[in-house]
C-alpha cells in the first residue's frame, strides 16, 4: 500500500500541463506518462454470512510516444476482507501487489496495431472494463468467470476501420505461462482467440471464439481458493455472442456463450439479458436475468438481479443490488462504494 501512496505523492507534487479532472488521471510533469487509479469497497449479506471488503486498490500508468503506447496497472486484490459467519469473524489481508496489465502497443498505421504483454482479453462487453466503478452493477455476470481466460499474456493484433460504423478485429495469441498467474480466472499456457465487433450509432455486436489450455484447478464460486496443478490439462474451446443497444436514456445488453472440450460441452450455456434505465445521469436502475449450466465445475443456476446506482459524478459510484438465485442459499444483498481517480 505504501508504494502506491509514495507514487501518488510524487505525482501530486509534480507539475502537470493539464488541469486535473477526477476520473481522468493526471500527467506527470510534461512526460508521456499519465497516472490514475481506482478502489472499491463493498458489503455483502448472503444467508447470514456478512462480509466487508476493501479491494481492487489499483494504480495505473500509461502514455504514448510517436507510434508506441504503453499501459501498466498494479493492484491489491483483496486488501482487507472481514467475514462474519454467526459468531465467527474471519479477517484476511492480501498484501501482494498483483500485475493486472502490462503491455506495449505499436500502431503500424490507421488500421493495424500490434501488442505484447499482459492484457484484458477483448472478449464480450464486461471484460474490457472489469472495474467496479465502471460497471453497471457491483457483480459481473457469471459467464464472465467461466467461459474464457480474462487475461492473455503474449501477443495481440488489432485491425480497426471506421466507415460510418466502427469495425474491429482482434487476435489473441498466447503460447507461454501467464504473467502473475494468480491474477487470472483460468491458469493457462496457451490461448488463441479472436474478437469481431461492429458498432454503428446505438448498436454494437460482438462475436468471440477461441481455444485455451487450462493447467490448474479453478472454482468460479470460490476464486480465491488455492489452485492445484491438473494432472491432465484441459483443452477448452469457447464461443460468445454479444449485442448492445445504447441510447441516452436506456440500454439493452445481452450475451450468450458456450464452452466445450473435444468430446463434450463443459458449459452447455451461459448468458444473460440486462436492461438499464437512466432516470438521470446520476440515478440508474438495472435489471439482469442470468442463466448458466456449467458441467466443468458442476454448477447450474438461474439468477435475477435488481440494482440501483447513484453517481453524484460519473467517477464515483454508490451501488446496491439484490440477487435472487434458484439456489436460494446464494441469495444476497450487495452494497458498494467505488471511485476512479
Amino acid at each position: 500500500m505504501y508504494k502506491i501512496i509514495i507514487i501518488l505523492a510524487l505525482v501530486m507534487s509534480s507539475y502537470a500541463q493539464e488541469e486535473y479532472q477526477l476520473g481522468e488521471g493526471m500527467q506527470v510533469a510534461s512526460l508521456p506518462l499519465y497516472v490514475g487509479g481506482y478502489f472499491s469497497s463493498d458489503y455483502k449479506n448472503r444467508d447470514n454470512v456478512i462480509s466487508y471488503s476493501l479491494d481492487d486498490i489499483a494504480i495505473l500508468g500509461y502514455g504514448d510516444y510517436d507510434k508506441f503506447s504503453y499501459m501498466a496497472e498494479f493492484e491489491y486484490k483483496s486488501f482487507y476482507v472481514e467475514t462474519h459467519t454467526g459468531d465467527t469473524v474471519d479477517i484476511t489481508k492480501d498484501r501482494k501487489l498483483h500485475t493486472e496489465r502490462v503491455y506495449l502497443d505499436y500502431k503500424l498505421n490507421e488500421n493495424y496495431m500490434f501488442r505484447v504483454g499482459k492484457y484484458n482479453s477483448p472478449i464480450g462487453f464486461w471484460n474490457l472494463l472489469p472495474v467496479n466503478v465502471l460497471r453497471d452493477t457491483t457483480s459481473s455476470p457469471v459467464s464472465l468467470n467461466i467461459l474464457f481466460p480474462k487475461f492473455t499474456t503474449g501477443a495481440g493484433i488489432s485491425y480497426s476501420s471506421y466507415n460510418g460504423g466502427e469495425t474491429k478485429i482482434d487476435l489473441m495469441l498466447q503460447n507461454n505461462s501467464d504473467l502473475d498467474s494468480d491474477y487470472n480466472n483460468y491458469t493457462v499456457d496457451r490461448h488463441y482467440g479472436f474478437n469481431f465487433s461492429y458498432e454503428k450509432e446505438d448498436y454494437t455486436f460482438k462475436l468471440n471464439g477461441g481455444y485455451f489450455r487450462n493447467i490448474m484447478s479453478y472454482s468460479p464460486i470460490e476464486p480465491d481458493e488455492p489452485h492445484e496443478l491438473l494432472v491432465h490439462p484441459q483443452d477448452l474451446y469457447y464461443f460468445l455472442l454479444s449485442g448492445k443497444y445504447d441510447t441516452p436514456n436506456y440500454q439493452l445488453l445481452g450475451e450468450i456463450g458456450t464452452q466445450r472440450k473435444e468430446s463434450e460441452f463443459t458449459t452447455n450455456y451461459a448468458g444473460y439479458i440486462q436492461g438499464l434505465y437512466r432516470f438521470s445521469e446520476q440515478h440508474i436502475g438495472v435489471v439482469r436475468l442470468e442463466s448458466y449450466d456449467d458441467t466443468l465445475h458442476d454448477m447450474k443456476d438461474d439468477i435475477a438481479i435488481v440494482g440501483y446506482t447513484y453517481r453524484p459524478i460519473y467517477p464515483v459510484a454508490i451501488k446496491s443490488e439484490y440477487q435472487i438465485h434458484s439456489l436460494h442459499l446464494e441469495n444476497q444483498f450487495i452494497f458498494s462504494f467505488s471511485m476512479m481517480f
Binding site: E19, G23, E24
Partner: peptide, 23 residues
C-alpha cells in the same frame, strides 16, 4: 452527447489508456 455522457465516456477511456482531446 451531454457533458455527463462525455464524462462517463472519457472516464472509461482513461482506464483503457486513452486521453481526451487537448484544450
Amino acid at each position: 452527447m451531454s457533458f455527463e455522457r462525455l464524462k462517463s465516456y472519457w472516464t472509461k477511456e482513461h482506464y483503457l489508456g486513452h486521453r481526451p482531446p487537448v484544450n
